[in-house]
């Protein structure tokens, strides 16, 4: 019962959703200020969500409706679980709840998986193109993502999230080393793609393929997909903070601000440019970081 409460209210679904909405508002406000606009009011993410709930749900005739409607639920359930695992570790590092670092990595991979399944299930050719992009993007960023996480694993020699936080509290954060800084920079770039933000938003690309993977979504399923994105905007900075800063609160905000700045100062790249960027530049830097970490820097 207690677990159920944790899963649904705190630090699970409700908490993550609210925090994610706050983060999303910060994101939109900062973006607006960068572009010399006024920006939305504080409750705008809530209004958007409620507006979508009131809209009609449309399922394309070519779709496999079960997979199409199940995909947002699968994504949001996994994201919530990842959030609970991370927050339980931050609140009480001794507790061994459900999963470790590897589990979180794989749970975060469920979102692209569900999005792709949903897009393919719609039977729309544009969604298929976008699904292909999303999948390529996922395989591109996953390699440097893994390498940058390995830096923390080498330095702390554990995959339990609680121990990762505890040992950073006792013996200094990972970011305080050469390899840690490089790994963090690579990690920051990969999560930009993981969140589907500019410059790596080619799978959604409103101006080009009209929302791409979400093109056929509307109403409640779309609201859930958007909410999932908003929750990820909160979870992934938390994950970065756990890995590189020992779960300190200020670092979550720092990561968020950096993400917003990258997003506002770059144009969208093509998918092949993104693949080359992740498999060449990022990979070299992240391997360099791993080598530095093995020799103790």
């Amino acid at each position: 019962m207690r677990t159920l409460f944790e899963f649904i209210i705190f630090p699970g679904f409700l908490f993550t959703a609210i925090a994610g909405m706050v983060f999303s508002w910060i994101d939109r406000k900062v973006t607006a200020r960068v572009q010399w606009r006024q920006g939305p009011p504080f409750f705008q993410p809530v209004y958007d969500f409620i507006k979508l709930l009131g809209k009609e749900t449309i399922v394309p005739s070519s779709a496999n409706s079960v997979i199409f409607l199940l995909s947002p639920l699968l994504a949001i359930a996994s994201t919530t679980l990842a959030s609970v695992i991370l927050w339980k570790a931050i609140i009480n590092p001794q507790s061994l709840f459900v999963g470790d670092l590897l589990v979180v990595i794989y749970l975060l991979a469920v979102t692209p998986l569900a999005v792709i399944l949903g897009a393919s299930a719609s039977g729309n050719p544009i969604a298929s193109l976008a699904a292909s992009r999303e999948m390529k993007l996922y395989s591109a960023y996953e390699l440097p993502f893994i390498f940058s996480i390995l830096v923390s694993v080498i330095k702390l020699n554990t995959i339990k999230l609680g121990e990762i936080i505890l040992s950073q509290q006792s013996s200094g954060i990972i970011f305080n080393s050469f390899s840690g800084v490089i790994a963090f920079v690579v990690f920051l770039l990969t999560i930009q793609a993981k969140l589907g933000l500019v410059p790596f938003d080619m799978a959604e690309a409103e101006t080009e393929i009209a929302g791409g993977v979400f093109i056929e979504y509307s109403g409640v399923p779309l609201a859930i997909h958007k909410l999932n994105r908003i929750m990820l905007l909160f979870i992934i900075p938390v994950f970065a903070s756990v890995l590189f800063f020992g779960g300190k609160f200020w670092s979550i905000i720092v990561v968020l601000v950096l993400i917003i700045l990258i997003r506002n100062t770059n144009p969208r790249v093509r998918i092949d440019q993104a693949i080359k960027f992740f498999w060449r530049t990022c990979l070299i830097f992240s391997i360099f970081a791993v080598v530095l970490a093995t020799i103790g820097y």
């Binding site: 677990t3 679904f13 709840f97 459900v98 999963g99």
Partner: peptide, 19 residues
Amino acid sequence: GVWQPGLATLLIIVGIAFG
């Protein structure tokens, strides 16, 4: 490491059921 697949599955199913 830690991985409790039973509990995790239960929670994911609960999540989907809520959805």
